[in-house]
Write a protein that binds this DNA or RNA. Structure first.
Length: 393
DNA sequence: AGGTATTCACATGAAACTATTCTCTGAGTTAGG
DNA sequence: TAACTCAGAGAATAGTTTCATGTGAATACCTGT
């Protein structure tokens, strides 16, 4: 195929998108449909910041893709706009590497406020002091948005939140209030009572979108993202329906639409068809898994590889089988053999990622173990296998 | 037959260890005055 | 003498290992009928 053809094909097809970014997660639309109630409530809660007093801490719960982050960012941004510079917000996604421990959380917040902090090497309390100092230096109301706040308790130092809720007692000039976001319902109950009462002075719940609401959202964005008339009848409905099945996840709906568009574009189709949506669904899943697997450490990958190889011949395997075979492969590839204890953990981790599914059963006299099965789509499985056998040649 | 007691093959927890990456400190070195 | 360099001490963190303890039900072992 000549370059001319590739480029001209691309130009022709590329008129599918008018503005692709509108469909990405980071895009903030001007209006957020079906969230008026939550917006108003949150706005009412944070409003006292305008008068220089500390707003209540808020705890926001809702499944993923229900607009929690979007609404929080939107409301706080509007608030800052009207505050004459007396309010500052810091948004932190606790799940991202770099803010999932006490040290790093304080370090990133401080950095967000404009002070350089080395990301390792200092004692934690020094970073903490620096953090306090920096906030104090601001002399403002600071709203801290902690997205996926639940990961802060999983880690060993579970007292991060406790420390955080008590920061105000050390502050004189500034005030710090917290907006905590999570999608784990049980999270708030699992907290220390002191932390709980302080953190959830107010609570907001974001219900999932239903198919109709998703459709509204998609229509709104599609108008900006796609050229006139490239969406075939029913495409939006299909995306909305698929996402509604997945507990009303708007992000998923938008991803579906975007990827479907990209697939149509790449295949040179002048229109986005329903079948493109099906392909998009598959691609998103595959990509997600591959992405996870690629970022796993070698040992974990090898364990997964072992499992997949064993499951070619059988329907299910158990921990012991995996460990034996794994040890064999380790010797073959000259890798260090981890303990069974560790391998057991790695398997449990893979289960958490939904790459495999496991169940702990007791075989009575024959012990207790985890039985491992697969629940991946064939095409996904194929791609994963290809990747792994490339890694372990 | 019915009821306990064993026993297997791991699961699960806690703590301690290791390697890596990074900062800070202070001793020794260098260059300029 | 001030500025620079560089090794060593100390931290944080991810990934492990070590040691210890837990667990559910199929079987083995009894018991009295």
């Amino acid at each position: 195929m000549s370059l001319d053809k590739i480029f001209s094909d691309f130009m022709r097809a590329s008129c599918i998108f008018k503005n692709r970014d509108v469909l990405s997660i980071s895009f903030t639309p001007d209006t957020i449909p079906h969230r008026e109630k939550q917006i108003n409530e949150l706005a009412r809660i944070v409003a006292p910041a305008l008068l220089g007093s500390k707003p209540s801490n808020v705890f926001i719960y809702g499944r993923c893709g229900t607009g929690k982050t979007l609404v929080s960012l939107y409301v706080t941004r509007e608030l800052v706009k009207r505050s004459n510079g007396n309010v500052k917000t810091v948004y932190i996604n606790c799940k991202l590497k770099g803010s999932d421990t006490k040290y790093r959380l304080f370090a990133t917040i401080t950095k967000e406020l404009g002070k350089e902090v080395p990301f390792t090497g200092l004692p934690t309390d020094m970073v903490y002091n620096l953090f306090i100092e920096t906030i104090e230096g601001e002399g403002k109301v600071i709203i801290l948005i902690l997205d996926e706040i639940d990961v802060l308790t999983d880690k060993t130092d579970g007292d991060i939140l406790y420390t955080l809720t008590r920061v105000n007692q050390e502050l004189k000039n500034s005030k710090l209030s917290i907006i905590g976001i999570t999608n784990k319902l049980g999270f708030i109950e699992s907290l220390d009572p002191r932390v709980r009462s302080s953190l959830s002075e107010e609570e907001l719940i974001f219900p999932p979108y239903n198919a109709l609401q998703l459709k509204d959202i998609l229509i709104q964005r599609a108008r900006l993202a796609f050229s006139e008339g490239v969406l075939e009848e029913g495409v939006i409905e299909k995306c909305a329906a698929l996402a509604a099945q997945e507990h009303g996840d708007a992000r998923r709906a938008l991803d579906l639409l975007r990827v479907a568009g990209e697939i149509a574009e790449r295949s040179g189709s002048p229109k986005v068809k329903i079948e493109h949506v099906d392909m998009a669904e598959e691609k998103i899943d595959t990509d997600k898994f591959l992405e996870i697997i690629k970022t796993q450490p070698k040992q974990s990958q090898l364990v997964l590889y072992t499992i997949l190889r064993l499951l070619e011949n059988r329907k299910e395997v158990q921990t012991g089988d995996v460990f034996n075979e794994y040890s064999k492969l380790c010797r073959e590839y000259g890798m260090k053999i981890l303990t069974q204890r560790r391998v057991s953990d790695l398997i449990a981790e893979l289960d958490l990622f939904d790459i495999i599914s496991t169940k702990i059963i007791s075989l009575g006299r024959y012990g207790r173990t985890r039985i491992i099965t697969l629940n991946l789509a064939d095409s996904t499985l194929e791609k994963i296998k290809n990747y792994l056998s490339e890694v372990f040649t």
